[in-house]
Each structure stands twice: as C-alpha cells, then as structure tokens.
Amino acid sequence: MNRLQIRTAILFLSFLLMSVTFVYISPLVMMMGLLQGVIAAALIFWIVVFLLTFILGRAFCGYLCPMGAEQELFDKAVRTKLRRVPYLRYLKYLLAVLWVGGAIALAALAGNLAVKPLFGLGNGLPPWNAGAYLFLYGITLGVFVLVLIFGRRGMCNYFCPMSVVFMAITRIKDRVKIPSLHLEATPEDCIRCKKCEASCPMSLPVQEMAGNNAFLDPECIVCGSCADVCPKSVIRLAWFWKQ
C-alpha cells in the first residue's frame, strides 16, 4: 500500500469509529464538563492534539479527524469543488473565539477543576441510546449537507473552530522554523500539470506554492496528497527546514 491508500484507509476507519470516539473528542462534552468544573477527556484530547501540532502540523486534520474523513469520503462520491463564499470564512474565527473564550471563562469561574476523563461516560463507553444515535446521525447528515452546499471540505474551510487554533499554531511553528512535518518542493522539476491542485482536499493553490517552494499556507493539512500524485516527485514531505 502507498501513502495515499494508507491515508484513505485510516480516514475510513476514523469515520467508522466515530460513534465510539466522538464523545471523547466532542467540544460539546468538553464545555459541559467545564460547566460543572470538570476536565473531561475531550479537553485533555484537544490540549494534547494542539501541542502535537507544533511537531506534526495539521496531520490530525489530514489523517485522523472523523469530520474531515466524512467530508472526504462524501467528496469522493459527489465530486464537488470548494465554493468560494466571500467573508464566510470569518465565521469559523468567530466560532473559535466563542469556543476558546468560553472554555477559558468556564474554567476561570469553576476555580478548582477536577480531572474526570470519563465524565458523562459511566463505565467508559458512549451512552448507547436513541438520543445519542439521533444526535450523531444529525451531525453526520449536517456535514454531508455542508459538503453538498459548499463543496470539498466545506466544513473545514468555513465552520470548524478547531481549525483556527491549528492555523495559529502552524503559523507560529513555521515562522520559528520548529522541526516539524511540512511540505517542500523542487520548483525546477515542475511540469505545471496541476494534478497537485486537483488532489488537494483543502483546495489550495498548490502549483503556485510549489513554484515558489513556499508551503506556508496554514490551511495546509500536510496530508501529502499533492506529493502522492505528482508525476515528477516535485513535492515531498519533510521534517527539517532548509536553511
């Protein structure tokens, strides 16, 4: 199996396991815990993932996020392009401020926080009841509708508050040149076939980025799709930054 096949398999598995994993990473469960003065598994999860972004970039978005997986799987079926909607992208910045600001405010109001990773989970398993299934089904359907309306990874581009935090960390690590997962290119070998742009799940101008050897767009999820389809191996994943 090549890297593209492995990535697709991981995304598919992430989507299949969403009914189990979602409650452990849910921003809603995280906020409910803070409201009761509890550090739930979801808060621990996001803190760890955000810290790992300094090393792995947005690899979580590219390889593990169940919502991202759902969008890409649906995109393979409906084959839509990202629809550019002016100013709509600012909505996710607003949602990020509300999410992060709300979490900080709730933590400050709670004072002493109790660490309870299994908050709301009882024996550690998600609550298998009709309400939980209906909620998860609603989210799945909602993400599918967003893909139909806004195209490829429309939720990530316009509505995901977590992506804003990922983008901020990515800008910091790229500016400081922390050894981390990123893309590099050999521009002189590019034949301008644009296969890289067609494969990019985030609809980025990859050919232009490769031509300038400047993959500094914080929306890049370092999935390596562009590198996998490049017939001349112009683009590659790298760890250490060139001086």
Score class of each variant (00 low, 15 high):
Val143Arg: 04
Leu148Lys: 11
Ala130Asp: 12
Leu141Phe: 12
Met155Phe: 15
Trp128Glu: 12
Ala130His: 06
Met155Glu: 06
Leu136His: 05
Gly154Ala: 04
Cys156Tyr: 01
Val145Gln: 00
Phe150Leu: 13
Pro126Asn: 11
Met155Arg: 09
Ala132Trp: 14
Leu134Gln: 10
Ala130Trp: 11
Gly122Leu: 10
Pro127Thr: 02
Tyr137Ile: 15
Leu141Lys: 12
Asn157Cys: 13
Arg153Gly: 00
Pro126Leu: 06
Phe135Thr: 12
Val147Cys: 06
Met155Asn: 09
Leu148Pro: 06
Thr140Met: 14
Leu134Pro: 00
Gly131His: 11
Val143Trp: 06
Met155Ala: 10
Gly151Ile: 00
Pro126Cys: 04
Gly138His: 12
Leu136Asn: 10
Phe119Leu: 08
Gly120Asn: 01
Gly142Pro: 02
Arg153Phe: 04
Asn157Arg: 13
Leu134Ala: 15
Pro126Phe: 04
Tyr133Glu: 03
Val143Lys: 09
Ala130Leu: 14
Phe150Asn: 05
Asn129Gly: 09
Gly124Arg: 12
Leu146Glu: 07
Arg153Lys: 14
Arg153Trp: 04
Gly154Met: 06
Pro126Val: 02
Tyr133Gly: 10
Gly122Cys: 09
Pro126Glu: 06
Leu136Phe: 14
Gly142Ser: 14
Phe150Pro: 01
Cys156Trp: 01
Gly122Val: 07
Leu141Pro: 09
Ala132Cys: 08
Ile139Gln: 00
Arg153Met: 10
Leu148Arg: 11
Gly154Tyr: 02
Leu148Val: 07
Gly120Lys: 02
Val145Met: 09
Phe135Leu: 09
